[in-house]
Computed example of a mutant assay.
Amino acid sequence: MTGDTLTRLTIPVRTAATKLIVVVRAPAATDYDRILDVLIDAGIGSVELTLTTPGTLERLPHLLNRFGDSADIGVGTVTDVKQLAAAIDAGAHYLVTPITDTHLVDAAHRAGVPMVPGGLTPTELFAAWQAGAAAVKIFPANQVGAGYVKDLRGPFPDIAVVPSGGVDIQGAVTWLAAGAAAVSVGGPLLGDAVRGGDLGALRERAHAFVAACAPDTT
């Protein structure tokens, strides 16, 4: 399967509209509910739950039942076929991996689930895109600047990119202005909320990111 012959899946509608994916790495999956409740109420349309959080897949059906009509809920840090299959079976709206593995991309595409694989070099990013990625994750984005989007678009004019890693609110604005399809953010938005921090402050940061990333939707 190549980029010339496949019918490419795209990132989910709410993710594309809000241009923002919030990566939630929590101490335990039972911490997700209170965080997602605040984020989604504040207008966040896409949340990536990571497999580095114990119990994520077991908790996912409950979270989809509670929040799935209001936001796209994806599963990230997928690094092998077994994890990919389990995340799909649990109902993930989309998948994210920090690596470039075309076999994972192909498996997700065949299952009808959009995948955003990570890479940094043009070779890695194009290989993932050619394999059928819905978008490619520039990771770690803090090692390059937003001008990297223009550099990639020279040889790969249609590639959809999502920077991840150290993206703060100003960085989000800069990357989106450069042409990123969306931005992936974690710590700069979540702060200490996953460790029991102030949820009111989390709500304020979420509102600020939503307004900065997709001002026309607010």
Results as ranks from 00 to 15, higher is better:
residue 44 I to P: 02
residue 45 G to K: 09
residue 45 G to E: 14
residue 45 G to C: 04
residue 46 S to D: 09
residue 48 E to P: 03
residue 48 E to Q: 06
residue 49 L to M: 13
residue 49 L to W: 05
residue 50 T to K: 00
residue 51 L to P: 02
residue 52 T to P: 00
residue 53 T to F: 06
residue 54 P to G: 04
residue 55 G to P: 01
residue 55 G to I: 01
residue 56 T to D: 02
residue 57 L to W: 06
residue 57 L to T: 02
residue 58 E to F: 00
residue 58 E to Y: 00
residue 58 E to S: 13
residue 59 R to S: 15
residue 59 R to C: 13
residue 60 L to M: 06
residue 60 L to T: 01
residue 62 H to N: 08
residue 63 L to D: 13
residue 63 L to N: 08
residue 69 D to A: 15
residue 70 S to W: 12
residue 72 D to K: 00
residue 72 D to V: 14
residue 73 I to L: 15
residue 74 G to K: 04
residue 74 G to M: 08
residue 74 G to A: 13
residue 76 G to W: 04
residue 76 G to T: 09
residue 78 V to C: 07
residue 79 T to N: 01
residue 80 D to L: 08
residue 84 L to D: 04
residue 84 L to S: 02
residue 86 A to P: 00
residue 86 A to Q: 15
residue 87 A to D: 10
residue 87 A to L: 10
residue 88 I to G: 10
residue 88 I to T: 13
residue 88 I to K: 11
residue 90 A to M: 08
residue 90 A to V: 07
residue 91 G to S: 11
residue 91 G to A: 12
residue 93 H to K: 13
residue 94 Y to H: 14
residue 94 Y to G: 02
residue 94 Y to R: 02
residue 94 Y to N: 05
residue 95 L to W: 08
residue 97 T to A: 13
residue 97 T to Q: 06
residue 98 P to Q: 10
residue 99 I to R: 04
residue 100 T to F: 10
residue 100 T to L: 05
residue 101 D to K: 09
residue 103 H to L: 12
residue 106 D to R: 14
residue 106 D to T: 15
residue 106 D to Q: 14
residue 106 D to S: 15
residue 106 D to A: 14
residue 108 A to L: 07
residue 108 A to C: 10
residue 109 H to W: 13
residue 109 H to Y: 05
residue 112 G to I: 07
residue 112 G to D: 07
residue 115 M to I: 15
residue 116 V to E: 02
residue 117 P to R: 12
residue 118 G to E: 02
residue 120 L to P: 00
residue 120 L to D: 00
residue 122 P to V: 14
residue 123 T to W: 06
residue 123 T to S: 14
residue 124 E to T: 03
residue 128 A to N: 09
residue 128 A to T: 07
residue 128 A to I: 08
residue 128 A to L: 07
residue 129 W to Q: 11
residue 130 Q to L: 12
residue 130 Q to D: 15
residue 130 Q to F: 03
residue 131 A to L: 11
residue 132 G to D: 07
residue 135 A to M: 06
residue 135 A to P: 04
residue 135 A to K: 10
residue 135 A to L: 07
residue 135 A to Y: 03
residue 136 V to G: 01
residue 138 I to W: 05
residue 138 I to Q: 11
residue 138 I to K: 05
residue 139 F to E: 05
residue 139 F to P: 00
residue 139 F to K: 04
residue 140 P to W: 11
residue 141 A to H: 01
residue 141 A to W: 08
residue 143 Q to R: 09
residue 144 V to M: 11
residue 145 G to V: 03
residue 147 G to Q: 10
